[in-house]
């Protein structure tokens, strides 16, 4: 992969909740155009890492640089797709409205989203093949549909970096394929995609590089180099078995 520059750089990042470390001294470099998976056991700090990278949780040490500059919220460089379950889906609004929320960052105070913003939202919806659901109340969406709506909301921001938190959790196969297709397209366009991923089986297939995380960064780099049984064992603490065989099969290690 050509070197298009470093999109995201995390250095010595430590995050703690009342002196309980959730992330210790994390170093990470993500190249522009990369598709990176973050994997690790529950409680390993995966969600925390991407939230800390965006400044949504405070860190005790270290820093984050986006395209060489210290990260500042609102510069529109990172678009965030949170976990589906963290939202109250019984909210009275429709799909188009949620996606349009992605344009709020560029609108500033007091301005309403207009036709231009809604068109951008429609385009994003088409990209995730939800164009027909514009007017659907979000309370009536299935899990996969919810996920695609959140992805569209991030797409609309047209940010160079996308961070997704467990986007494939509990979605049906067609949705998963649709999302993967979108991520591939983004990466081809030079956008950087960072995904907290829960399914080890699909890591080599969907991603170029991977970060193995368990409070500490165990290892990060291209999937072929890093996704080994040894590293998986270090990350998951032993119960890797079947998965290790899979990793071996995929990477030939």
């Amino acid at each position: 992969m050509e070197d298009r520059g470093v999109a995201l750089e995390v250095e010595d990042l430590t995050v703690a909740y009342s002196d309980q470390p959730v992330l210790w001294d994390i170093d990470l470099v993500v190249q522009a155009g990369d598709k990176m998976a973050i994997v690790g056991p529950n409680g390993a700090g995966k969600s925390t890492l991407i939230k800390a990278a965006m400044g949504l949780v405070p860190s005790v040490a270290g820093e984050v640089r986006v395209f060489g500059r210290p990260f500042a919220k609102g510069r529109g460089e990172i678009a965030y797709v949170p976990q589906r379950s963290s939202l109250e889906w019984d909210f009275p609004t429709d799909v188009l409205d949620v996606v349009t929320m992605g344009t709020y960052g560029s609108l500033g105070w007091f301005r309403r989203p207009g036709a231009a913003e809604r068109d951008r939202a429609r385009k994003a919806l088409d990209e995730v093949t939800m164009g027909a659901f514009e007017r659907r109340p979000i309370a009536q969406l299935s899990g996969g549909q919810q996920q695609r709506v959140l992805l569209a909301r991030a797409l609309v921001q047209e940010a160079p970096i996308l961070m997704l938190d467990e986007p494939f959790q509990g979605v049906d196969a067609p949705t998963e394929q649709a999302i993967v297709a979108v991520l591939d397209r983004l990466s081809d366009d030079g956008k950087t995609v960072i995904v907290v991923h829960h399914d080890l089986q699909t890591v080599p297939e969907y991603f170029d590089s991977v970060l193995l995380l368990n409070v500490r960064a165990i290892e990060s780099g291209p999937v072929g180099d890093v996704f080994t049984e040894e590293n998986l064992r270090l990350t998951f603490g032993g119960r890797v078995g079947v998965l290790a065989q899979l990793a071996e099969a995929e990477t030939g290690h």
Binding site: G74, G76, I78, Y80, P82, L87, E88, F110, Q157
Partner: peptide, 21 residues
Amino acid sequence: LLWKEFKLLSFDTEFGESLGR
């Protein structure tokens, strides 16, 4: 005046923060 901000606040505060609001 602050309609969309309050909508964000009620629906997805974290997303609003990620936008820098």
